[in-house]
Simulated assay, not measured.
Amino acid sequence: MVINRSEIELILARKQMTATSICERAGFSRNRFYEIMRSKSVTPKTAGKMAAALEVDVTEIIKQ
């Protein structure tokens, strides 16, 4: 799965969330969060954790 970085950044802005707040909710370190954002692909589990932390459906944060 490929994460849509720009969509995640828009969701963070809409919800007025910081990288730190999403990391706390998803159980990621800040370093891991930035690795995920830079990566070419992630596991379905990681995408699911990110979506849950953002309170959106996983289809909203992956590239189709």
Rank of each mutant, 00 (worst) to 15 (best):
R5P: 05
I11W: 04
C23N: 06
L10E: 09
R5G: 07
E9C: 04
R30F: 07
E7F: 00
I3G: 03
E7K: 10
M17L: 15
I36R: 05
S6C: 01
S21H: 05
N4Q: 12
E7W: 02
T20S: 13
F33D: 01
R32H: 12
K15Q: 15
I22H: 07
A13W: 05
Q16H: 10
E7P: 00
E9N: 04
I22F: 11
M37H: 09
L10D: 00
A13V: 01
R5W: 01
M17I: 11
N4M: 09
A19K: 15
I8E: 03
Y34K: 04
Q16S: 12
M17A: 09
C23I: 03
E35P: 00
I8V: 14
A26S: 13
I11H: 07
F33G: 04
L10A: 02
E7S: 13
M17F: 11
R14I: 09
R25P: 13
L10P: 01
C23F: 10
R5C: 04
R14M: 13
A26R: 08
A13P: 03
M37Q: 03
A13G: 06
E9Y: 10
F28N: 00
F28I: 00
A19Q: 14
E35A: 06
L10R: 13
E35G: 07
R32P: 00
C23T: 15
T18D: 01
L10Y: 11
Y34W: 11
T18I: 05
I8G: 00
I36M: 13
Y34E: 11
M17K: 14
